[in-house]
Design a protein around this nucleic acid. Structure first.
Length: 508
RNA sequence: GGGCCAUUAGCUCAAUUGGCAGAGCAGUAGACUCUUAAUCUAUUGGUUCUAGGUUCGAGUCCUAGAUGGCCCA
C-alpha cells in the first residue's frame, strides 16, 4: 500500500479534493516521511498582543538590550520570501506578529523546508525581538517549526471571506480571516462575564444555578417546543422553551435570588432575529417587584454599554441609541394611543374596535382572541418598530401574561413590562404570580386554548402548582435575550452574526 | 408560507444581443537579505448550484428543485 493510499480519506471528502489540496497533501506526505508531522511539544511563551503592548514604545536600540527568547505559535497568514530573508505574519489568539525568517539564522536546510510551507500552516518559532528597518516589531526565529500542515487554501488575503453562507457554515474560516468576527465573540464573552459579575456583586448576590434542559412538561413561555424521546424510560421529553418554572421552584425552596444564563429552544421560524436555540439570562428575585427589575435592568444595560463601548451612546444600524438617559416607562395602552391618538380609552378594551383596527392594518386575528391579545397585536403593528431608545412598556394584558401577577387596581393587566431597544424586544419581566389558585386557573385557560388548537399555549404543570401551594414569597423575575443584546452592542444586523454556529439547513 | 435577488476557478469578482469562460490573489517553477495586498518572469487551474427544456449554439432564455440574502406574513 502506498503512502498515498494510507492517508486517503473517504469517498465523500475525496469528491471535494482539488488540485490545491492534493499538492498540499503531497507536501504532508513528504513531511510524514521525515518526522512526526503533527508534533505537540512546542510551547509558546508569548502572545502577539502582549509583545506589541510590552514593546510598543521601544526603539531598535532598546530592543537590542532585551535578553530574552520569545516563543510564538500561530497560523501563517502571509509569507513574503525575498531570497534569503522572508517576512511572515503569524496570527495567534490575541493578534498577529511578524517573524523575520533569515536563512543564515536557522539550522542547515531548515530555510529550504520553510519555503515549502504554505499560508495557513500552523508554525512555531522562537528568537529575539527586534524592529525591522521599516520599524515593525518582529521576532527573528532561530528555531522554527511546522506544527500543523494546513491542507486547504485560505480565502484570498485582501478581500478575505465575505460570502455570508460560508462565513456561517464554516465559522472556523470566518474566524481565521475576519478580525471583526473575532471581535464580536470577544465582546459577547465580555458581556456575559460582566453580567455574571453584576448579578453576583455585593448587594445583589444572585446565585447562579442550572436547571433542566429537557422537560417532561414544557412551560415558562408561550412557544412551541422541540420534542424528543427518552428511550430507556420511553418518555416524551421537550427541550425547554424557558427555565422559568424551575427557577421559581427554587424561589419556593428558599434560594431567594437565582439566575441562569443558558440556552432556550423554540420550534419556530428562523430570521435575522430568531434562532431555534438562543441564550437567555433569566433571574428571580424574592421580595422585589417589577419596578425593582426595571431599575436593575437599566443599571445593567447602562453598565454593559459602558463596559463594551466605553460610552452610553451606542451606534446601531446608523442610529444612535442612548443608554445613558433614564429609560422611558409607558404602559401598553398609552403607547398604543400615543401612536394612534384617534383611539379612545374605551376602544382599547373593546374587541370589535380592536379587531377592526387590526383589520385596517392587515393584521391577522383569530376569533378566539380576547381584548388583551388583540391589543398586543395592535401594539406590535403600530408601536414596536418605532421604539428606538430603551423603553419599558408596562401593564401587559393578563390574557397574554399567564405567569404574571395581576395589577392590584386593574385585574385586566399585570405588573409586567417588556424592554424594547431599536424596535426589538430585549427583556421581559414581571412581578410573579404566586397565588397558587390564580395560577391553576390561568393554566386551565391555557389548556383550553391548547385544546382549541393553539400550539404555543401552555400545559398544566401540577408540580409547579404544588410548589406554589407550599408558598412562594412575593417575587419578581425577568428574562433578557443575550443574543439580541450582543447584536445591539456590536452593531450586528443578524442574530447569526453573534452566534458562533447559527442554525443552517444541511448543505446540499 | 409569499415576493424579489444571488449562486461562474480555493477566495474576490468579470463575461456586450444567446456566439472561443476571463482577471486579480492563492498555487506551481524561477529571481531577490527589509517586506507590509512585496516586486519581476513564466505557468497550472472550470460539473458556470442541480435536473430537465428551447436553440445550429446556453454562464446568459424557459421549467422545476437546492442553498443563501433581503423584504413581507
Amino acid at each position: 500500500m502506498s503512502k498515498q493510499d494510507k492517508h486517503d480519506t473517504t469517498a465523500d471528502s475525496v469528491a471535494e479534493e482539488n488540485r490545491l489540496i492534493a499538492e498540499r497533501r503531497e507536501k504532508l506526505n513528504g513531511i510524514r516521511a521525515e518526522r512526526n508531522a503533527y508534533p505537540n511539544d512546542f510551547r509558546p511563551n508569548s502572545f502577539a498582543a502582549d509583545l506589541h503592548e510590552r514593546f510598543a514604545n521601544d526603539d531598535t536600540e532598546t530592543l537590542a538590550q532585551v535578553d530574552e527568547i520569545f516563543a510564538v505559535a500561530g497560523r501563517m497568514m502571509a509569507k513574503r520570501v525575498m531570497g534569503k530573508i522572508a517576512f511572515v505574519k503569524v496570527q495567534d489568539g490575541t493578534g498577529s506578529i511578524q517573524f523575520v525568517v533569515q536563512r543564515d539564522n536557522l539550522s542547515e536546510g531548515l530555510y529550504q523546508q520553510f519555503k515549502q510551507w504554505d499560508i495557513g500552516d500552523i508554525i512555531g518559532g522562537s528568537g529575539v525581538i527586534f524592529r525591522t528597518q521599516k520599524g515593525e516589531l518582529s521576532v527573528k526565529p532561530s528555531e522554527l517549526r511546522l506544527l500543523s500542515k494546513s491542507l486547504r487554501p485560505l480565502p484570498e488575503k485582501f478581500h478575505g471571506l465575505t460570502d455570508t453562507e460560508t462565513r456561517y457554515r464554516q465559522r472556523y474560516v470566518d474566524l481565521i480571516m475576519n478580525e471583526q468576527s473575532r471581535k464580536v465573540f470577544h465582546v459577547r464573552s465580555k458581556m456575559i462575564r460582566y453580567i455574571r459579575d453584576f448579578m453576583e456583586a455585593p448587594g445583589r448576590e444572585f446565585l447562579e444555578v442550572e436547571t433542566p434542559m429537557m422537560h417532561p412538561i414544557p412551560g415558562g413561555a408561550t412557544a412551541r417546543p422541540f420534542v424528543t424521546h427518552h428511550n430507556a424510560l420511553d418518555l416524551t421529553m421537550y427541550l425547554r422553551v424557558a427555565p422559568e418554572l424551575y427557577l421559581k421552584r427554587l424561589i419556593v425552596g428558599g434560594l431567594d435570588r437565582v439566575y441562569e444564563i443558558n440556552r432556550n429552544f423554540r420550534n419556530e421560524g428562523v430570521s435575522t432575529r430568531h434562532n431555534p436555540e438562543f441564550t437567555m439570562l433569566e433571574f428571580y428575585w424574592a421580595y422585589a417587584n417589577f419596578e425593582d427589575l426595571m431599575d436593575l435592568t437599566e443599571d445593567m444595560l447602562r453598565g454593559l454599554a459602558l463596559e463594551v463601548t466605553g460610552g452610553t451612546k451606542v451606534e446601531f444600524e446608523g442610529k444612535e441609541i442612548d443608554f445613558g438617559a433614564r429609560f422611558e416607562r409607558i404602559s401598553v395602552e398609552n403607547a398604543v394611543r400615543k401612536y394612534s391618538p384617534e383611539l379612545a380609552d374605551a376602544d382599547l378594551w373593546d374587541a370589535a374596535t380592536l379587531r377592526a383596527e387590526c383589520k385596517a392594518r392587515e393584521v391577522h386575528t383569530e376569533d378566539s382572541w380576547g381584548e388583551g391579545k388583540l391589543l398586543m397585536e395592535l401594539f406590535d403593528a403600530t408601536v414596536e418598530h418605532l421604539l428606538l431608545n430603551p423603553v419599558f412598556i408596562t401593564s401587559y394584558p393578563t390574557e397574554v401574561s399567564p405567569l404574571s401577577r395581576r395589577n392590584d387596581d386593574n385585574p385586566l393587566v399585570t405588573d409586567r413590562f417588556e424592554l424594547f431597544v431599536a424596535g426589538r424586544e430585549i427583556a421581559n419581566g414581571f412581578s410573579e404570580l404566586n397565588d397558587p389558585e390564580d395560577q391553576a386557573e390561568r393554566f386551565r385557560e391555557q389548556v383550553s386554548q391548547k385544546d382549541a388548537g393553539d400550539m404555543e399555549a401552555m400545559h398544566f404543570d401540577a408540580d409547579y402548582i404544588r410548589a406554589l401551594e407550599y408558598g412562594m414569597p412575593p417575587t419578581a423575575g425577568e428574562g433578557i435575550g443575550i443574543d439580541r443584546l450582543v447584536m445591539l452592542l456590536t452593531d450586528s444586523p443578524s442574530i447569526r452574526d453573534v452566534l458562533l454556529f447559527p442554525y443552517m439547513r444541511p448543505e446540499a
